[in-house]
Simulated scan of single mutants.
Amino acid sequence: MTGDLSSMTAPPFILSPTSLTEFPAYWGERPELFADIAQGRDEQERAERVLRWFICTLKGQYTTRNEKMGSEKKPLNPVLGEQFFGVWPNVNGRGDTHLIVEQVSHHPPITAYHLENKQAGVALSGHSGQKTSFSSGSIIVKQNGHATLTITLPNGKKENYLITLPKLQIQGLIWGSPYIELADSTAISSDTGYVATIDYKGKGWVSGKAHSYKATLTHNGKSVKSYEGTWTGIGKVHKTEEVFTDSTVPKTEVSVKPIEEQGEWESRRLWSKVANGIRTGDYDAASRDKSRIENEQRQMRKDEAAAGSSWQLRYFQHVDSDPVYRQLAKAIKGVPEEEDAYLIVRS
């Protein structure tokens, strides 16, 4: 069976109580590593810090739901215009880290996000969408989109990094315990000439270790260093005992306003009854409110079509061409030369 499964409606009992608009918060769950990026002494050390932070976000992004709920669950499909806001309080005297997320498209589903620690001089902007299909008993999730990270140094100089997104394999379906494994490779390209390539490997039938990675850092095409380990555990500099990544450090959960103080388009308020039904096992209540939200959205789209209008984004603006992507993608094999983007306009 093949084809796009992204828009498939799932019954509440296999759903996560969390909307996809909350997923960009995983980028910020190691705020100490994010804030420390600009503190690197030179271009190479900053490139290594970007790589370390990125790898250490993967565990939260791709294994958290297995740990909390026993297996991978399908997240709630966001509605157009849905929003999520969060903050990680001051870390190591380097200020707060703030997150803004907005669902900028429903067909196809696209989530835009902006993560920033102004005091530390680090900001991340990106967007992602998912296209899913079945293959050999697994669900394959191709993540569309990219992220760009900008470092502002004390002298005002800026460094930009392009981050591509990994492909996911949801395995364990036939045993009824789905889990995520990363596949293929991703890259982080900088305008300082440094490029990190991360290759992902899982546990095979005969050999291999789950959640393994090997990363290589190059500068202007010449190899500088390599690193290997697991993105859920420890990674080391190749052929040494020097720890490069430690994903066993507890993550820092994002802080969010109480539901009663949130706006009507904020995720946890919008989906509160559905989420409560899923958590308590009242799937009838969850299904009723999920249907209500989906029907209201269909009616809004019909009303807009009848009025000849369209939904207006609040925090992001779509651009057909991302100049940072266009510049930095040249150093990465196998990615399109051009890609659109969503730029933050209100923060």
Rank of each mutant, 00 (worst) to 15 (best):
T57E: 00
T57Y: 00
T57V: 02
T57A: 00
L58T: 02
L58W: 00
L58Q: 03
K59P: 00
G60L: 08
G60S: 14
Q61H: 13
Q61F: 10
Q61L: 11
Y62L: 05
T64N: 13
T64D: 07
T64Q: 11
N66H: 10
E67A: 14
K68N: 10
K68G: 01
K68Y: 09
M69Y: 13
G70F: 06
E72I: 09
E72D: 14
E72P: 00
K74A: 09
K74P: 00
K74S: 09
L76E: 03
L76N: 05
N77W: 04
N77H: 12
N77S: 11
P78E: 05
P78L: 00
P78C: 06
P78Q: 04
P78Y: 03
V79E: 10
L80C: 08
G81I: 10
E82T: 10
E82C: 10
E82M: 09
Q83D: 12
F84Y: 15
F84R: 05
F85E: 00
F85N: 06
F85A: 04
F85H: 13
F85S: 01
G86A: 15
G86V: 03
G86P: 05
G86K: 04
V87G: 01
W88G: 03
P89M: 03
P89D: 09
P89C: 04
N90M: 09
N90P: 03
N90K: 13
N90I: 02
V91G: 02
V91H: 05
V91D: 01
G93K: 06
G93M: 05
G93N: 03
R94T: 07
R94E: 08
D96H: 14
D96G: 09
T97N: 02
T97Q: 04
L99T: 04
L99Y: 09
I100G: 01
I100M: 15
V101R: 05
E102R: 04
E102I: 06
E102K: 00
E102S: 07
Q103R: 08
Q103L: 06
Q103V: 02
V104R: 12
V104C: 13
V104L: 14
V104M: 14
V104Q: 11
S105D: 12
H106L: 08
H106I: 06
H107Y: 14
P108H: 07
P109R: 07
I110P: 01
T111M: 06
T111N: 11
A112W: 04
A112Y: 08
A112Q: 08
Y113Q: 04
Y113R: 03
Y113P: 07
H114W: 08
L115D: 04
L115H: 11
L115Q: 09
E116L: 11
E116H: 07
E116M: 13
K118L: 13
K118P: 01
K118H: 13
Q119H: 03
A120M: 03
A120H: 00
A120R: 00
A120V: 06
G121F: 02
G121C: 11
V122K: 01
A123I: 09
L124G: 10
L124T: 15
S125E: 12
S125F: 01
G126P: 06
H127I: 05
H127P: 04
S128H: 14
Q130H: 09
Q130W: 07
K131S: 11
K131F: 09
S133P: 01
S133D: 08
F134H: 07
F134D: 02
S136T: 10
